[in-house]
Design a protein around this nucleic acid. Structure first.
Lengths: 155, 155
DNA sequence: CGAGATAGGTCAATCACATTGACCTATTCT
DNA sequence: AGAATAGGTCAATGTGATTGACCTATCTCG
């Protein structure tokens, strides 16, 4: 799909520099969304892994260590340390499952839930702002393009 | 901006699950764009750093080590190893600058240029496809939303 | 009941990677 | 000639993640 004229390109022509700009903007958008939560986490000596744990536990309270291991795709050794740190800081609560005492029930404490809401809320707020700014149609378009990009990944 | 009615939300209301979906899709899009080049690099024992070097040198042939250090935001020690590897594999060419023999001119070899074109081309192709699929207006909207998100980052 | 499987925890070795600091050469600038 | 600069290299350190081995508590099943 070559460009036809210098002053106007048809709807399906995308020149090199525009595509590079797309890639660049996407990187910066990612960094922007991650930046503020990272700063909040750093204050407590925590990292993105801790946020990921809080995020999933918030959405599936009582999930087990094994389930968490699966969704996060990490080994139990890699999970153990941050999990203990979160427990020590009183952000999560570990208890034995009723149906099987070998299994741990992981839940957020009130403080953990509060922190999670702040972290994730900050990120979702950025999206909400960008979507609100662009309008509903643009939002749908954004989903269409980004979803198309994501299509190649199995999951 | 609370939701008004359950069945229809106005253009500026974005509920929780939709925002989470946006975040999720963006992650997957990122991974999708990175996945294939990473696989190609891995075959040669290279990583994303090497691609970044090739990318910038392709766009500014003859740039110095110091300049590369600046754009990549890494120390010279961190840059030195991958740079030597690229040289060993015959992908880049180092020579002394004419105006100052202390300064290195970094250029891609034919093979380096070919690899760079394949790596970056693969990524840009994904964007081109997604944009072409969604159309020109949707593309503009995508830039608007993503650009709005990226706005918070200085650079 | 007793053997084997399972969930989770822990210790240790290793690997990859980046960072800081110190020191060295070649070269240019003054 | 002496100071500054571009680059290179060695060494120590720190962080994370990975694998492997081994341990306890608990459950399941013949």
């Amino acid at each position: 799909m070559p460009r036809k004229t210098p002053e106007k390109t048809d709807a399906y022509s995308h020149d090199h520099s525009r595509l590079i700009e797309a890639w660049r903007v996407m990187h910066y958008a990612l960094r922007a969304v991650i930046a503020e939560p990272d700063r909040m986490l750093a204050k407590r000596g925590l990292t993105r892994v801790h946020h990921r744990i809080l995020f999933f536990v918030a959405r599936q309270p009582g999930m087990s260590v094994g389930e968490l291991q699966t969704v996060l795709d990490v080994t139990k050794q890699a999970l153990n340390t941050p999990l203990k740190q979160l427990q020590t800081q009183g952000l999560i609560d570990l208890s034995k499952a009723a149906h099987d005492a070998r299994v741990r029930r992981i839940e957020l404490t009130a403080e953990g839930a509060s922190l999670e809401a702040k972290l994730t809320g900050e990120q979702l707020h950025m999206f909400a702002e960008a979507f609100a700014h662009a309008g509903e149609d643009a939002t749908a378009s954004w989903f269409e393009v980004t979803g198309k990009l994501a299509e190649r990944i199995a999951r």
